[in-house]
Design a binder for these strands. Structure first.
Length: 451
RNA sequence: GCGAUCGUAGCUCAGUUGGUUAGAGCGCCGGUUUGUGGUACCGGAGGUCGGGGGUUCGAGACCCCUCGAUCGCCCCA
């Protein structure tokens, strides 16, 4: 690399090859599943006025003061590259009058930006998939959202990940719990880690997921949210859990799972790799695969009327790390033209075959041997050889690169002949793969069969 | 913001207590074969050893600074 070549920005990634295939597989699977649940696609701006995020998240938090990509535009307004989807969607909900569609189910995906030190599974520009239900206070909304998340992870083939579920209760429950935690931890203040002594002032709930062994000693006996839940909050949580059971979504109660920000109410959840699983190893310190919760307080903070909402987001890169290697779509045919005339006819043949839904590459570099090599390396099912002899007789030489068989095929028949042959190759390929995976055996019985 | 580890060819990495002209595998290009891939053999291109300064007769190696990467801490929307 020349020393005057500009470098990429810290924390950005150039995704290519196998990683890019995995990334695309995650997005395509998300798009497919989200349609099954009838979440409507939205496209959002990647930047907003800074206040959209600072008001939603809280002016004084570290998140807003240190970890956003903010800048002034030429008019002097402070703008911020979106660090999350939720605040922007909430803003759009209010500015576009989407209340008329409530309860509104929307989904989106794309790049997000956070000014943080990069590490495994954390980048400054990263990508998330996101799903929200806005304007629904019913626990069924939480259930539906979680069922979609669960199905998505299954369809991605991700194993060893469990839904960790908690409730933070309503405002009164949450505040009472917070007070209880402050009282409890204040008594042992001197024995807590320095970080947790600070958390005691700023965000006492966060002490519960401290990694410091000095803190862990006190966690087991810390007050639980359940002691503070109002009857309504308890009933809400029970509706969520029974709904999950009915939908066949496995979950585990995580009493110390909390959220850092104040607008969260009721349901909070994270899909987390089981300890010792391959997924846990793959993700390092960034263990949450998909997370979210109910944020009934957020839309109010942007000047809207009280609007209940629930949502989740998941990092595409993290999911991609867990889905394994994905094959690129197969190449049906590589055209190997010989000579100037061959090049011209090849362009025509390629266009013709692509219109018949066949994937086609033209090997235009090097001598014929080189072109055959490239056809082979690209994984093409067939090489289509097109020289003066073939063109003169309006035929193309079709070589099966698996078997080595070669025969001539007329221009008139080539699209049909290839389509049929490709179908056979695809089926053989899928069959090979399916045999290797053990098929659908082992899928668990769905709870619906018990009704 | 803090800490640890690491920067040698396009990629993955060797490189002895500091010693002559910095190596290998893969990849790339060409040839054995000018109309036939996978294998084999032969040849070739490609490096200011991240950058700057210092120690030394001599630095890829040692020291300082700097930039970058990785992993972790803080934070986590």
């Amino acid at each position: 690399m020349s020393k005057n070549t500009p470098k990429a920005i810290r924390g950005t990634q150039d995704i290519f090859g196998a990683d890019a295939e995995s990334f695309a597989f995650v997005v395509e699977t998300f798009e497919r599943v989200r349609k099954l649940y009838r979440f409507r696609r939205v496209e959002m701006p990647v930047f907003e006025k800074t206040e959209v995020f600072s008001r939603a998240i809280g002016e004084t938090t570290d998140v807003v003061s240190k970890e956003m990509y903010s800048f002034e535009d030429r008019g002097g307004d402070s703008l911020t590259l979106r660090p999350e989807f939720t605040a922007g969607i909430a803003r759009a909900y209010l500015t576009n009058g989407w209340q008329q569609h409530a309860p509104l189910k929307v989904a989106t995906h794309g790049p997000l930006f956070r000014y943080e030190r990069p590490q495994k599974g954390r980048y400054r520009q990263f990508h998330q998939i996101d799903a929200e239900i806005i304007g629904a206070a019913e626990p069924q909304a939480d259930v539906e959202l979680l069922a979609m998340a669960d199905q998505l992870l299954r369809e991605l083939g991700i194993e060893g990940v469990t839904l960790n579920l908690n409730t933070l209760g309503d405002v009164a429950s949450r505040e009472a719990w917070r007070a209880g935690l402050i009282e409890y931890f204040s008594k042992v203040r001197g024995d807590l880690s320095e970080d947790s002594q600070e958390r005691l002032e700023k965000n006492p709930l966060r002490i519960l997921d401290s990694k410091d062994p000095r803190d862990k000693a006190f966690l087991a006996d810390a007050p639980k949210i359940d002691e503070f839940l109002s009857d309504e909050a308890l009933a809400f949580f029970e509706n969520v859990t029974s709904g999950l059971d009915a939908a066949g979504v496995k979950w585990t109660r995580a009493e110390s799972l909390v959220r850092g920000l104040d607008y969260y109410r009721h349901t909070a959840f994270e899909f987390i790799p089981d300890e010792g699983s391959a997924a846990a190893d793959a993700l390092g310190a960034q263990s949450t695969v998909l997370g979210g919760g109910r944020y009934d307080g957020l839309i109010e903070s942007l000047g809207g009327s009280v609007t209940p909402a629930v949502g989740w987001a998941a990092g595409i890169e993290r999911l991609a790390m867990l889905v394994g290697e994905k094959e690129a779509a197969p190449l049906h045919a590589s055209i190997v033209p010989i000579g100037e005339n061959g090049a011209k006819v090849a362009a025509s043949l390629a266009s013709f075959l692509r219109m018949h839904d066949l994937s086609v590459d033209v090997a235009f570099r090097g001598n014929m041997k080189k072109r055959m090599t490239r056809a082979n390396d690209a994984g093409a099912f067939f090489a289509l050889i097109l020289g003066d002899d073939e063109i003169a007789s309006r035929k193309v030489a079709v070589k099966n690169l698996r078997t080595g068989d070669q025969s001539l095929c007329s221009f008139d028949d080539v699209a049909v002949v290839l389509s049929e042959a490709v179908e056979g190759e695809e089926m053989a390929r899928v069959a090979r793969k399916f045999r290797g995976s053990g098929g659908f055996a082992g899928k668990e019985r769905h709870p619906f069969s018990n009704y």
